[in-house]
């Protein structure tokens, strides 16, 4: 598997660290309530299809990336910096 890092270019997946769903970027406000926090910390979709997930270019630029990947075909349709993906 290869990821096209926006900073470093296409690199082997061994250079990256995997974190999980990009949901982690949507941190609720402290007073958002139990349900919102439970959802944020614990609940994850397990889609057969397109998913947005976080990868860290640990052996490269230290950039956190949002990778849009199809879990069925493993096709990667988009890579962006996490710092830019939120806005």
């Amino acid at each position: 598997m290869r990821i096209n890092c926006p900073v470093c270019g296409e690199r082997d997946r061994r250079e990256f660290y995997y974190k999980g769903a990009a949901v982690a970027l949507e941190r609720p406000a402290p007073d958002a309530g139990e349900a919102a926090w439970d959802e944020y910390v614990h609940l994850r979709e397990n889609p057969a299809g397109e998913t947005r997930e976080l990868w860290y270019h640990e052996s490269g630029c230290n950039g956190w990336l949002v990778v849009t990947r199809n879990t069925v075909s493993h096709e990667i349709s988009g890579v962006e910096l996490a710092s830019e993906a939120r806005s």
């Binding site: 982690a24 970027l25 976080l54 956190w64 996490a82 710092s83």
Partner: peptide, 17 residues
């Protein structure tokens, strides 16, 4: 050490850019 470095980068880039 490695885990904390990743964590700091994530909190900055992902939550407080």
């Amino acid at each position: 050490a490695g885990e904390v470095m990743r964590h700091l980068e994530f909190l900055h880039q992902g939550l407080r850019p």
